[in-house]
Amino acid sequence: MDYIDPHLHMVSRTTDDYETLARMGCVAISEPAFWAGFDRGSVESFRDYFRQLTEFEPKRAAQYGISHYTWLCINAKEAENVSLSREVIAMIPEFLEAKNVLGIGEIGLNKNTRNEATIFLEHLDLAVKYNQQILIHTPHLEDKYQGTRMILDMLMGDSRIDRSRVLVDHVEEHTIEHVLENGFWAGMTLYPVSKCTPQRAADMIERFGPERLMANSAGDWGPSKPTAIPDLIMELKKRGHSKELIKKIVYDNPKQFFSQSKPFTHG
């Protein structure tokens, strides 16, 4: 089955992974900007990173017939450095016309601090000013519930934000309802140990229905599985769900959401 992975950090994966993804049915990827595993020291590091996301990765993906899209920001972890964050935010517009940029992301919170919230709000201003879609990272483990509620407070406190153009990622059992019932899109991240298993993701689909819901692998440089979406497809098939339902989650929904950004042309 053809599918789209809406959140996959291919800069930290090998070219072999692109080939495996293509063999498994992956036809398009969206890659949000994220933490490199270490804090970068200058705005020039981010400029190079954004060139990698907008120039190099699309070519690498294209070799395997996969469309590559991306999102730009300074991530929540590095947002603790407010002055660097502001330099990066000021530089991002240089890349917004690149042909694979879908919007601003993954912005969000990490440890739910004042600095992170300040930079999150400044990213929202940037997205509104340039009419960009938004992809949001919610914190991990014990910080997730508090951080997700804080993020929703900031989004809902800004009347300029079009909720149908915002994807809130890494939802789990205790946060999904808050995201969906307030009109946002939700992403479930299939990730070993932290975040969500394919089985729990299938439970959430059964519980909350398939509207405005998608799944991703968030494959990155840590322990993760870039082919986690085929695992979810398999789980849903095993449970007897229809091909239409599965396709809606893994293909139709990401396509519908991304199609709100002009550069998205897939299918």
């Binding site: 004042r114 407070d153 729990r200």
Partner: peptide, 26 residues
């Protein structure tokens, strides 16, 4: 049960967090 275990393992959310962090309201 899954939701309750998640909430058990979570930090508390304070709806007045913007005031305590002095974050300006839009």
């Amino acid at each position: 049960k899954a939701k309750r275990v998640q909430l058990l393992m979570s930090r508390e959310y304070d709806p007045r967090w913007k005031d305590s962090m002095s974050i300006a309201k839009k």
